[in-house]
Design a protein around this nucleic acid. Structure first.
Length: 914
RNA sequence: GGGCGUAUAGCUCAGUGGUAGAGCACUGUGUUGACAUCGCAGGGGUCGGGAGUUCAACUCUCUCUACGCCCA
């Protein structure tokens, strides 16, 4: 196949992905090979590929392709998450568009409709992952609601329940009044919102007064509406202002409820009046205060319904005018908050806030303006209401103990390690995990209630029935489980757990590595650690790599509302998947977010083009595929040199990959390909091909160049799988080799096993030095770069002599010199160029201005002298020589010798110019 | 309020106890039948401020400033 003059990614990408997937290349049979396993964070089945997925999956694909090339039994588990809330929302929204709604259907009918939706639209993201080139094992694609997965979920729930690690409890939960479900602490996002701080008088009962004679207590609140369910006023136990009234009562305005004044450390004497209203049913702190004051959870007053509208409290004291109002202003309609404030103000209980206007005039406001940390539900987007309900909880504190230990003792390594502190901080202060959700889509909680409200937890209704008294009528709990409860089982439930005798599970659990964004460290990673330890008795993986966020070019977070979202598929269309992937790798340095930079993606597209063209050049000179893993035998210096460079590059790359330094790995192969292979090696070998085709040098160079190019393709493949696979086959074809049964994706990682002579590498380094110096000198003196010049070498070093003999053609071509004359140059104006320790004289009588050449040499001399002087200073410092490490002293001496010799040569050159 | 991170060339970022690098941008230039999505050459940084440790600090310690993130 002849390569087109331009490289067009789209067609190549589609063709090779199809080939890989259909040929089973993503998971070749390697029963005896060492396993390497990664599980993909399952994207929501509703999802579409965003830039964060592109980063996360590129990194995983790089690792899995690398390990596959190194011969491991590489398994990348893939699948999607049923994503309870998100998916139910999507389907409900579609119904809304048709003037339909969920409650028009039975639960079973609705769930069927969600499954239908999944069958039709659930594959979007999996196809997009394919476009990115991700080499996952699609043959075993998973879904968190697959029957086998459901088994795992049920078993885990039942076991945890039987071990007293799951329990049902009545306490405050984060209630989302829009979605009408409880959510966990992690699903609450606190945002600073402008709000108000109102001050009220609560009258003391029956003529009781404070020590200063006041007959009321001042309380302040940001949520006045909740006073309808106030159950106490708290003051600090050591607060002298209120000591005399602790145990006395106030009579609440509006409801007339008589509530006690209690002493509790929650009240901060420094804040406001030092007294705080206590609403145990609608505030997390107040709930604790209420409990300490002896109020049972079941007795706490609730004044809001599931929509967060005011309802009657159990003592029946809320006036009718408030019933049914929303908790606060909504859709422009005043709510309970506004009504309560108005009523208190009218009745004289409001203490106004006095402030000054800009003009300095006193001004009276109802409330003090204040910024309030307000909790929002991450999915529903409305303010969360703390609400008293019965929910299922996991005793996370007990489950956290082993994962904490695992990280502490290094069983699990977190990379970068800075995240360990954050991990410990959360895990050591972990709260009970609320796992029940009032939704229809998800894993139904395996708990049944009888007529008396007694609960039976079992994997099936039959089993529950067998636990219950004879003839009991059981009703299953209507709630479903938090999505993260099931995804916590991902590392082993995807491999066949809890079925016995699962070879895949035995071989691939624990997994080898987890790569995830730090944003799901608590949601997912930590919970996998807990469930891994609980179900498997082991950490799910020995290493956890956390990457950052991909941000917009200006550093802000990407969000649909800001309109600054970059679509990875658009970048793939524009620059190719390989370029996007390489960008992600090159920018991924540990512990830092990535700022989007399209120019850089473009740059890596250019890199792909460069490689494409280099291959075209190779092909035009008969350089095709290699047939050996081992480096070919080489005599020519350039060939030996490139073999050495390949070896060094492979070592550096392996080091970077072992350290999970994706940026270093990408830069290593980039620099080698472009700066070493293309810029120097291909130029160095060009003169070889102007000779006889049967020449042994030509034969050897074809072999070595073809081998080196193959090594590039292999090493680059994890980063740029598409173009490398394409070129791999093109190279095979050129040499009449059928690589269709030996595709690059499952080829072998470099193993050059070559001895490279130092003479050869020194020679090439010398040629490069000479060439660079000649080019630079010409440029500075304004000599046409194409001009071919005659050069004289009055006294040649051994290196120069042998190199000029071996590589004269390369020198003449690269440095644009006519054959070098050993011996003195004719008298006259000349420029002088060094290479290593050799000084070439290049006569330029009549062409150059001697003053310019002198200036050039003087500039170089100044640099050398400065370096030499600085080193001399250091070496003459007795402290340095005595105390510094011997290597440092040796290096300083060598550097000094080098720079002073250079200075001497330049001085000599200047002297010759007169 | 607590914790974490970041501050290096115009921009985006690497980096090491021995005197600083890449990509892009910029300037000059265009020579060889791979490549102008390119080549060659070049300019550009008191490594956020201050103090300390050290023979030596961009690197380690402390502190200040600015920005970002998480938790309360």
């Amino acid at each position: 196949m002849t390569l087109d003059t331009t490289f067009s990614p789209a067609e190549i990408e589609a063709r090779w992905y199809k080939y890989w997937e259909e040929s089973g290349s993503f998971r070749p049979e390697r029963p005896d090979a060492e396993p390497f396993t990664i599980v993909n964070p399952p994207p929501n089945v509703t999802g579409s590929l965003h830039i964060g997925h592109a980063l996360d999956n590129t990194l995983q694909d790089i690792v899995i392709r690398y390990e596959r090339l190194r011969g491991k039994d590489a398994l990348w588990v893939v699948g999607t998450d049923h994503a309870g809330i998100a998916t139910q929302m999507v389907v409900e929204r579609q119904m809304e568009e048709r003037q339909d709604k969920r409650t028009n259907y039975s639960r079973e009918e609705f769930v069927d409709k969600v499954w239908e939706w999944k069958a039709e639209s659930g594959g979007t993201i999996t196809n997009q992952l394919r476009r990115l080139g991700c080499s996952m094992d699609w043959s075993r694609e998973q879904f968190t609601m697959d029957p086998h997965f459901t088994k795992a979920v049920l078993k885990t729930f039942v076991d945890l329940y039987n071990d007293d690690l799951i329990y049902r409890d009545k306490r405050l939960v984060n209630w989302d009044p829009k979605l009408k479900t409880a959510i966990s602490d992690l699903e609450v996002e606190s945002q600073n919102m402008p709000g108000s701080f109102w001050h009220f008088r609560y009258p003391l009962e029956d003529g009781v007064t404070l020590s200063d004679g006041r007959d009321y207590i001042e309380v302040a609140t940001t949520r006045p509406e909740t006073m309808l369910a106030d159950m106490a006023v708290a003051v600090h136990p050591t607060d002298d202002r209120y000591a005399s009234v602790v145990g006395k009562h106030v009579v609440l305005p509006i409801t007339g409820r008589r509530i006690p004044i209690v002493a509790d450390e929650h009240a901060d004497p420094e804040l406001g009046s030092g007294a705080v209203k206590i609403t145990p049913g609608h505030d997390f702190n107040d709930f604790e205060v209420g409990k300490r004051a002896g109020i049972a959870a079941g007795d706490m007053l609730n004044m809001l319904d599931g929509d967060a509208n005011v309802c009657q409290t159990s003592d029946g004291m809320v006036p009718d005018e408030f019933i049914g109002l929303h908790r606060f202003k909504k859709d422009g309609i005043n709510g309970a908050r506004e009504a309560v404030v108005a009523r208190l103000k009218a009745d004289g209980y409001l203490i106004p806030h006095i402030t000054k206007t800009k003009k300095g005039e006193e001004q009276e406001l109802d409330a003090e303006p204040r910024t309030i940390a307000t909790p929002f539900g991450d999915r529903g987007g409305v303010v969360i209401e703390p609400w008293l309900t019965d929910q299922w909880y996991v005793d996370a504190e007990k489950l956290a103990a082993k994962p904490i230990q695992d990280v502490r003792d290094g069983t699990i390594e977190i990379v970068p390690a800075t995240w360990e502190k954050t991990f410990f901080n959360w895990m050591e202060n972990i709260q009970p995990w609320c796992i029940s959700r009032q939704l229809w889509w998800g894993h139904r909680i395996p708990a049944w209630f009888d007529e008396n409200g007694d609960v039976y937890v079992a994997a099936s209704e039959e089993e529950a029935q067998s636990q219950a008294p004879q003839g009991a009528v059981l009703t299953q709990d209507s709630d479903v489980l938090d999505t993260w409860f099931s995804s916590a089982l991902w590392p082993f439930a995807t491999l066949g757990w809890p079925e016995k005798g699962q070879p895949l599970l035995d071989k691939h659990f624990p997994n080898s590595l987890l790569i995830s964004g730090f944003d799901i460290l608590f949601f997912w990673d930590a919970r996998m650690m807990m469930m891994g330890q609980y179900n498997m008795g082991e950490a799910p993986w020995p290493k956890l790599y956390l990457h950052g966020l991909v941000r917009a070019a200006d550093g802000s977070k990407m969000s649909k509302s800001k309109g600054n979202v970059v679509d990875p598929l658009g970048l793939i269309d524009q620059f190719g998947a390989d370029a996007l992937r390489f960008f992600m790798a090159a920018m991924e340095s540990q512990g830092r977010d990535i700022k989007m930079d399209e120019k850089r993606v473009e740059g890596y597209r250019n890199f792909a083009t460069k490689l494409w063209n280099a291959t075209r050049y190779c092909q035009s000179n008969g350089i095709g595929a290699s047939s050996t893993l081992k480096a070919p035998q080489a005599r020519l210096a350039a060939n030996q040199w490139i073999i050495g460079e390949v070896q060094q590059t492979a070592l550096e790359l392996e080091k970077a990959m072992a350290d999970l330094r994706f940026d270093a790995a990408a830069n290593t192969i980039y620099q080698f390909t472009w700066s070493r292979f293309c810029d120097w090696y291909l130029e160095l070998i060009k003169p070889v091909f102007s000779g006889d085709a049967d020449n042994p040098a030509v034969v050897e160079t074809r072999e070595v160049a073809g081998w080196a190019l193959d090594q590039i393709l292999v090493m680059l493949h994890p980063f740029m799988p598409f173009i490398t696979e394409e070129l791999w086959h093109a190279q095979g074809e050129l040499n009449g080799m059928d690589r269709s049964t030996y595709p690059l994706i499952t080829a072998k990682w470099p193993n050059p096993r070559a001895e490279v002579s130092k003479e050869a590498t020194d020679a090439i380094d010398w040629v490069i030095d000479l060439t660079s110096n000649v080019r630079s000198a010409k440029n500075e003196l304004g000599i046409a770069p194409g001009a071919k010049l005659a050069a004289f070498l009055p006294s040649a070093s051994d290196l120069a002599a042998s190199t000029m003999e071996r590589s004269s053609a390369a020198i003449e071509r690269l440095a644009r010199l006519t054959p070098v004359t050993l011996g003195d140059a004719p008298a006259g104006a000349a420029m002088q160029v060094t290479a290593g320790s050799d000084v070439f004289i290049i006569p330029l009588e009549g062409i150059i201005d001697i003053a310019e050449e002198k200036a050039r040499l003087e500039k170089a001399l100044a640099v050398s002298q400065k370096e030499a002087k600085s080193l001399e200073g250091r070496l003459s410092n007795a402290n340095f020589v005595e105390r510094a490490k011997p290597e440092a002293v040796e290096k300083a001496k060598a550097d000094f010798a080098h720079h002073s010799a250079e200075a001497e040569r330049l001085q000599g050159a200047l002297a010759r110019l007169g």
